[in-house]
Nucleic acid binder design. Structure first.
Lengths: 225, 225
DNA sequence: TTTGACAACTTGTTAAGACAAGTATACAAG
DNA sequence: CTTGTATACTTGTCTTAACAAGTTGTCAAA
């Protein structure tokens, strides 16, 4: 017999009909739940055979969600130190180069510069650009404590839903090296991100600079094509 | 009136009932199609209001799919040059560090080292590790022409479906610099990837090294949480 | 003018059922 | 032993129906 790839024969789930009977719901509802698990990559399904659980994976830091929640999910303690909180009149150049969603001109933005730490160790320098018209009264908000996303939710009702990002390598300049405690010229990852709401409202422009040693962006269970 | 974020009021789609009537299908079927568009981030939906198209985005190179198809989707011409094609007895160390899915020990792998080019310009050096038991007869396969994924499909019936990846910054060493035509110490992105089939079979381990100048990994329409 | 009730939409969710198509098993025929 | 067939499973796809819940506009009452 010809040997295929090591398919780990995992436990099969009960059939859709059995699940429907057990939980006293319709098969449509069972299928909705199973399809969602399938899209998340937690199970796979085979016509005529059944549904099977996939091997489990721990959550990683993807660089797309809230820094606070992502680090907490990874089991560590996130902290932030505000470096600067000023008004600027334009976005960094790289933003326009990498991201398709162009910002309107003649805008002014709050620029929130923070050093992001995991377990008290600095791992990233991050500049968040927030439209001043979108966030009235942000000057008086307490962005120090809690995550920015929580503040966006609480004060203005904004819910981040989508992220468009571009990632490129770079080297630390003097300012970045100082903030992250690395030497000048050390490898870093520069991530450009535009976060939008479900309704396609632009909520923030972010430039993140991650240190390269001992910290990696991971993407788990990414569906191909 | 307080001004919110610039929500671009885009064209509303016909209601589910109208679509069902127009195409002579049930509303459930219409909803399946609309939900899929929603998951892809192409439309958004609001209860009680309707479904709306989101702004369009061009496709970018994500680093997760087939290099060939991704570059073609971006509108460029991908080419590859095989640097080496040998048998090895273990995976690079970084693979075990970054990726959760551990390979079985005492294995042997085909190692296919390629320089990846876009429009004849080298942009990445890539080592693909293929389990020798999984791909019998790979030595005689013509991996030169066409993409490796197409060969995997044609000869063994394998279909890549999921990718787990880790991305970290680095600097080019002498060999990499020579392959990519950049100077030693130039910033690069190192991507570690495990590709699996829908049935959770490991199909390949990949180490990619992307040059940093004028080439960025992009992720578009990434759903948060 | 402002307010509130109401009708007419919209999407969200669930139900119960039918048929197609792929898979696995048992069993008889060769 | 091998092969084919029938049968009973499985998931995939689709239909018709009902109700919940949020939004929008109309219109009468205050």
């Amino acid at each position: 017999m010809q040997q295929g790839p090591s398919r780990s024969e995992r436990t099969a789930l009960p059939s859709e009909n059995k699940l429907a009977a057990e939980f006293k719901v319709s098969r449509v509802t069972v299928r909705q739940a199973l399809d969602e698990l399938h899209r998340k990559g937690l199970i796979y399904r085979e016509k005529g055979r059944g549904s099977y659980a996939r091997s489990q994976h721990i959550g990683g830091v993807t660089g797309f969600g809230s820094f606070t929640s992502e680090v907490e999910n990874a089991g560590s303690k996130p902290t932030s130190r505000i470096v600067e909180f000023v008004k600027v009149s334009s976005l960094p150049d790289g933003m326009k180069i990498h991201l398709a969603k162009l910002p309107p001109k003649n805008k002014s933005y709050h620029c929130l510069a923070r050093v992001r730490c995991v377990d008290s160790r600095p791992v990233a320098y991050e500049e968040t650009y927030l439209d001043t018209e979108t966030y009235p009264g942000l000057e008086r908000a307490d962005v120090e404590k809690g995550s920015l996303y929580a503040t966006m939710r609480r004060l203005w009702g904004y819910e981040p839903a989508w992220a468009d990002a571009a990632i490129e390598p770079g080297v630390a300049d003097e300012a970045i090296a100082k903030h992250l405690g690395i030497r000048v010229g050390a490898p870093v990852v520069v991530a450009w991100r535009v976060t939008s709401s479900e309704q396609d409202e632009v909520l923030e422009y972010v430039r993140s600079i991650y240190r390269g040693d001992g910290f990696a962006l991971t993407v788990r269970r990414h569906k191909i094509s």
